[in-house]
Every structure is written in C-alpha cells, then in structure tokens.
Design a protein around this nucleic acid. Structure first.
Length: 483
DNA sequence: TGAAATGTTGGGGCG
DNA sequence: ACGCCCCAACATTTC
C-alpha cells in the first residue's frame, strides 16, 4: 500500500465490503474515500422505484456502519456524478478513482466519458466488474453475433472460464484523515412517504450484507436440494429469495456461484436442483446482456411486429390488476404479495404478467413499470427482458399462444390454496376445491366462507375462455399483417 | 418455464 | 359371445 495515494471509491451497484473488486483495489492501493452519489435517478434509464429506494436507504445505513467500524467514512453526495466526482477528487487530493461497472445502457456511455474526463485530470481511473458473472461484450455465438436464445447462451457461460473466487472483505482500510463534507442520508428522502408501505417491507426484509449471507446459507442448507420442483411452489419457501440482495449488490453473483458449486460437491447435492438454480442466475446474465446489446428493448419490443399490436389501455382494468382485484385468486394473491412485501414468487410473476398482457391485452410496458416501482429486486435487465419474454416479443420468448389459465396454475402450484389464503384473506375460509375458482363455488360453500361475490370478493373481470380467444385472434392477426 | 382441442386405445357395462 | 357405446387415460396437434 502506498501512503501517498488516495483512492476515491465510487460505490454504485455494489453495496458490500466482501467480493468488491473496486474496494479491494482501493484498500491495496492507498487511503480509501468511499462515496455514494444519489443522482435522483437522473442518470439512469429509469429512476429507482419506491420499493428499491426503500431498500437502498436501509442498505446505505448498514454500509455506513460497516465502513465506520473500519475507520472509514462513507461520504454521501447528491447530484450529478459527472460534476461531483472531479470536485470531490480535488477535495481529498485523490490520485485514483475506482468504481464497479453498472450495466444500465444510459450510464454505460456516460461513465466512459466520465472516466476519460477524470483521466485528463491526471487521475488513475479503474473500472471493475462485479454486477455480472460474465461481461456482456465477451460472450458471442460462433458467428460472432449476440446470443438471442437462452440455451446456447447458457452453454457458452458454462464453457467459459469460470468466475474467479470471491474476494474476502479487505482486512484493513485506511480512511481519510480530514473531515469531508457529507450529506445526511435522511435528507435525501429515499423512502416513499406512503405510510404503510415501508412497514410491510421491513417485516419481510433485512437489507444488510450480513443478512444476505445468512439468507444464502439458509437457502443452500434447506431449499437447494429440492429447488427444481420447490421453486414452483408459492405456498412454500422453495426459492432463494436472494434477488434483492443480488440486485443491490449486497451479494455478488460470484459469491452465489461459488457457494452453490461448493455445496454441489457435498454428497447428494450435485443435483439437478443446483444446476437449475445456476441456470436461473444465468437468466439474469442473459437479460442484462440483452439490454446492453439491444438498448432499444427498454421501451420497444425486440420483435418489431409487436409495435403495431393494438394494446388496450383501460385505467380501470390496470388498477384492478395492480390492487389484486381481478377475481382470479392466484393473480390477486400475487399482486397483493407484491404490494405488501415488495416481492413476488417467480411462478406467480409469470402468471400475473401473462394475465395482464394476454387476458387484459395491456402492454407489457404497463406491467414492467408497476413492477419497477413495487419490487425491491427490480433489475433493469430482468424486468425488461422478462416482461418482453412473457409478451412474446422478447428474445427466446414464450410463444404468443402460450396463455396461462390462472385457475389451472393455481390448482397445480398452490393445491391447498395456502398461498391464496395468505394474501387474499377474504377467501381464507373457502374450501380448497373452490379456492382457485370462487365463481364456480356452490352458494352454500360461499355462504359458509362468508363470501359474497361481487361484494367481498370480485367476480372475474374477464372470462378466461373469452379472453383467451380474443388474445389468440389478435396475436394471430398481427402475425399475418405484413405491412 | 401451456392449454385446449382432437385423436387413439382399451377396459367394462350392457343389450 | 359379440358388438356397441361410454369414457377415462393417454398421446398428438393446434393455437
């Protein structure tokens, strides 16, 4: 370590101390001045949504404490990073600037310019990878094109040089000896004002780096072996629930990758389940590679035939979907889980997305924006690419004719209605035979459960079979239209 | 990482 | 005993 060097560490999508290449580099190079800059979402394609801002606020509180423990102060600044970084570099007489790469197409170009500008200021700029396992510019098909199909993409990942071992948190940090002006986190008002919301989020989540590791080990110990089938059951704890940690960088994909592979080498664990989980991590890579290479995806369908599709725009229907009042229990349970906890089970995400797009014929953008605001794990790549996937206009997309039957999906993956009962309490007492189709329940069963359809719980806002026919017809017509 | 319609088969009831 | 029908169970195809 060079006592004469001072590294300005720009903390971005990596709110953690362990396996943070930029931080390790900074610690090994000299005095570390970590800074988090709140740009009011102006630098990004989409400003972080409400739930994500709540998470960010909590995570920053923890990061501040972790740096403080190690004799280092996390500086907080608000405004344009392109203005703040050069200025702050002067303030602390920095010799170096380091940050972790972020893959929002809007910031990718901006960051390159920024790096060039800092270098002209005689600063040693280094940009480190960490948000993804594989850099988006490295993986290509044999023909040299960007992968648009998942399976060959995943094969290329598995054949590539495996991600390196995760780094331990730096042993000792040398903080800057003089005070540097810093904002007070609370004044940023990151947490949405809606009174109830943050409380619901706090009941379910602990946004700290330590909690991230506890969750990872909890998952590996209890749910990894049965992941292949368990992941589809919203009524159980079958998924990893790591997505918000991963998105905010409290955990790195490298740490997950290595923890899973380590677990696979234990007896009985080298299972299809572990492989399946790795594939899910690779879907995240795929989605992020897609938006980097096809940035128009953010607001336009990748398959341009869909740009002419006459999507409907009923504010009333959209609101019913958002509030979980569609009359389809599995859809309503999912939408209410999302609103109340900032997260939704993956299987149910597919069902509610299919419902909005194919049953209500609303644009995938409407759903994408709602998820963006309400999910604690909202990731630009995953959210964009997966909504397009469901709509049928994305890469390796679900065929246009795949329309989930919400009743059957409910019966199949929530057979006793446990999940529905948890989030749709007005149906809690209904017999399991009718829980996924209350409109078909005999009057007697409804009475016993204290349900008056259309009053205590809505009647289906669309008829499944009619909606299905309508969607198939519209999509078929679009495909036939060559103009 | 579907669902629904349609086709096929085979066992059992029954005249 | 036999053909006929019904229909569940499974397979195929179509959207």
């Amino acid at each position: 370590m060079d006592k004469k060097r001072t590294v300005l560490l720009w903390v971005r999508g990596d709110i953690r101390l362990a396996d943070n290449s930029a931080l390790t580099y900074a610690a090994e190079t000299g005095v570390v001045v970590p800074v988090y800059i709140w740009e009011d979402g102006k630098a990004e394609s989409l400003p972080p949504g409400g739930a994500a801002r709540w998470w960010l606020q909590q995570a920053l509180v923890d990061l501040q404490a972790q740096f403080h423990k190690r004799g280092c102060k996390l500086i907080l600044r608000r405004g344009d990073a392109a203005r703040i970084l050069p200025q702050l570099a002067k303030e602390c007489r920095a010799t170096d600037v380091a940050w972790g790469r972020v893959y929002d197409p809007e910031t990718v170009a901006r960051d390159e310019k920024l790096a060039a500008r800092l270098r002209r200021q005689k600063l040693d700029v280094s940009i480190h990878d960490g948000y993804l396992l594989f850099a988006p510019e490295t993986l290509r098909t044999k023909a040299g094109t960007v992968f648009k199909v998942f399976t060959p993409f995943s094969r290329a990942c598995l054949a590539a040089k495996p991600p390196s071992k995760p780094l331990p948190p730096p042993q000792d940090l040398r903080g800057f000896s003089q005070p540097i002006k810093s904002d007070i986190l609370k004044t940023w008002k990151l947490t949405p004002a809606k009174a109830q919301w943050p409380k619901g989020l706090a009941d379910d989540w602990e946004p700290t780096e330590q909690a991230a590791h506890e969750q990872l080990h909890e998952f590996i110990q209890h749910n990894l072996n049965a992941y292949k089938t368990g992941r589809d059951r919203p009524d159980r704890e079958g998924t990893s629930r790591l997505s918000p940690y991963l998105h905010h960088g409290l955990l790195s994909p490298r740490q997950i990758w290595h923890a899973i592979h380590q677990a696979m080498h234990k007896p009985g664990a080298g299972s299809p389940s572990a492989e399946r989980y790795i594939l899910e991590i690779l879907w995240r890579e795929f989605c992020n590679h897609l938006i980097v290479n096809f940035p128009t995806m953010l607001d336009k369908p990748l398959d341009r035939r869909f740009s002419k599709f006459p999507y409907r725009a009923s504010a009333k229907e959209l609101a019913a979907w958002q509030k979980g009042l569609t009359g389809y229990p599995i859809v309503d349970a999912g939408m209410r889980q999302l609103w109340n906890t900032g997260w939704m089970h993956n299987r149910v995400r597919m069902v509610v997305a299919s419902f909005l797009i194919k049953h209500l014929l609303h644009s995938w953008r409407e759903g994408m924006l709602w998820f963006w605001d309400t999910l604690v794990d909202a990731d630009l790549g995953n959210n964009t690419a997966n909504w397009q996937w469901v709509a049928g206009c994305g890469a390796d997309a679900a065929p246009y004719f795949r329309i989930f039957n919400p009743t059957l999906q409910g019966r199949k993956f929530d057979p006793d209605g446990t999940y529905v009962r948890m989030y749709v309490p007005e149906l809690a007492k209904l017999d399991a035979r009718y829980i996924h189709e209350p409109s078909k329940a005999p009057p007697d069963a409804l009475r016993k459960a204290g349900i008056t359809l259309g009053k205590t719980y809505p009647l289906p806002i669309v008829d499944h079979s009619a909606a299905r026919t309508r969607a198939l017809l519209g999509l078929k017509r679009m495909r036939a239209d060559k103009t």
